[in-house]
Computed example of a mutant assay.
Amino acid sequence: MSYENITTEQKERVHYITVNRPKQMNALNKATIQELHEAFKAANEDEGTRAIILTGSGEKAFVAGADIKEFADFGTSDGKALAAQGQKKLFDFIENLSKPVIAAINGFALGGGLELAMASHIRIASHNAKLGLPEVSLGVIPGYGGTQRLSQLVGRGKAMEMITTAGMISADDAYESGLVNHVVAQDELMALAEKIASKICNNSGNAIKSAMKAVNANYTDGVDGFAVEIAEFGNCFGTEEFVEGTTAFVEKRKPSFK
């Protein structure tokens, strides 16, 4: 499938998705959100894909926010619909995929861009990256899950400070607060993302899917995460990958998951 605002590439078992709007600092508009939804859906359904790497084109921005021109004249009902549709189509959709998404943050990750990174499962950043939620400086708040996921990742106090000041933090500050997993030089960013993806690919895809479902359950209102863990633990016993993994352990060899 061809896209106008993103590019995709498959290398062995890793699928690459790149937001490709460099003149707009890779800002998210409706068309880009739709294309990202389609690309993530296709990668998640592809049996040959085991991990997904998400990044932005160029060296300045991962995603520098939303395309403000698209909603500058919206009213209350329009704003609610924008947030609800965006969360369902992309941000919640990514969080609940069955395959891990690694966000390689190669520059500015602001507003919707940071929300996109936070919806991903693993985040790594280059030293030049700047991260923040500047929405209150525009008279609005983060609407794509930013108030919820930032609090989960960095704690209530840090999230309150970042959101209410509309300030940006450095990659190192993001690492210290737990917002990103790793910080590396920009020319090492994709190599680290690929290294992490390679480790993921060596493990049981079914077990990873179950583990991700169990972890997400802890952050879902009205869901008992421990009960989900028990159920998914049991489900793993009924897979060929469990047989292969345990047999390989007994035979003192590396498992071969298909």
Results as ranks from 00 to 15, higher is better:
169 I>C: 04
169 I>E: 01
169 I>W: 00
170 S>W: 03
170 S>F: 01
170 S>M: 03
170 S>Q: 02
171 A>V: 03
171 A>N: 05
171 A>F: 04
171 A>T: 10
171 A>E: 05
172 D>W: 10
172 D>F: 08
172 D>M: 10
173 D>T: 09
173 D>V: 05
174 A>W: 05
174 A>M: 07
174 A>F: 05
175 Y>W: 09
175 Y>N: 04
176 E>K: 15
176 E>N: 08
176 E>Y: 11
176 E>G: 02
177 S>E: 07
177 S>D: 12
177 S>H: 11
178 G>D: 06
178 G>M: 07
178 G>T: 12
178 G>R: 14
179 L>R: 10
179 L>Q: 07
180 V>T: 10
180 V>D: 08
180 V>F: 07
181 N>C: 04
181 N>D: 12
181 N>L: 06
181 N>E: 11
181 N>H: 14
182 H>C: 06
182 H>K: 15
182 H>Q: 15
183 V>T: 08
183 V>I: 12
183 V>D: 03
183 V>Y: 03
184 V>C: 11
184 V>T: 12
184 V>M: 07
185 A>D: 05
186 Q>V: 12
187 D>M: 03
187 D>G: 02
187 D>F: 08
188 E>Y: 08
188 E>L: 09
188 E>S: 13
189 L>S: 01
189 L>T: 02
190 M>H: 11
190 M>I: 15
190 M>Q: 13
190 M>D: 13
191 A>H: 13
191 A>M: 08
191 A>L: 13
191 A>P: 01
192 L>E: 14
193 A>G: 15
194 E>I: 02
194 E>R: 12
194 E>A: 09
195 K>A: 13
195 K>L: 13
195 K>V: 09
195 K>Y: 14
195 K>I: 10
196 I>W: 12
196 I>L: 15
196 I>R: 13
196 I>F: 10
197 A>C: 10
197 A>Q: 08
197 A>G: 07
197 A>N: 10
197 A>T: 09
198 S>D: 14
198 S>H: 09
198 S>K: 11
198 S>A: 15
198 S>V: 01
199 K>E: 15
199 K>P: 04
200 I>F: 02
200 I>E: 00
201 C>M: 10
201 C>V: 15
202 N>W: 14
202 N>I: 08
202 N>Y: 13
203 N>R: 14
203 N>M: 14
205 G>I: 12
205 G>F: 12
205 G>W: 15
206 N>D: 13
206 N>P: 03
206 N>V: 11
206 N>H: 12
206 N>K: 15
207 A>L: 13
207 A>V: 03
207 A>T: 01
208 I>M: 13
208 I>N: 04
208 I>R: 06
208 I>Y: 04
209 K>W: 00
209 K>D: 03
210 S>G: 06
210 S>K: 11
210 S>M: 08
211 A>Y: 13
211 A>C: 04
212 M>Q: 00
213 K>A: 06
213 K>P: 01
213 K>C: 03
214 A>I: 00
215 V>F: 08
215 V>W: 05
216 N>C: 00
216 N>H: 00
216 N>V: 00
216 N>A: 02
216 N>L: 00
217 A>R: 00
217 A>G: 01
217 A>E: 03
217 A>K: 00
218 N>H: 06
218 N>V: 10
218 N>K: 10
218 N>G: 09
219 Y>E: 07
220 T>S: 10
220 T>W: 02
220 T>A: 06
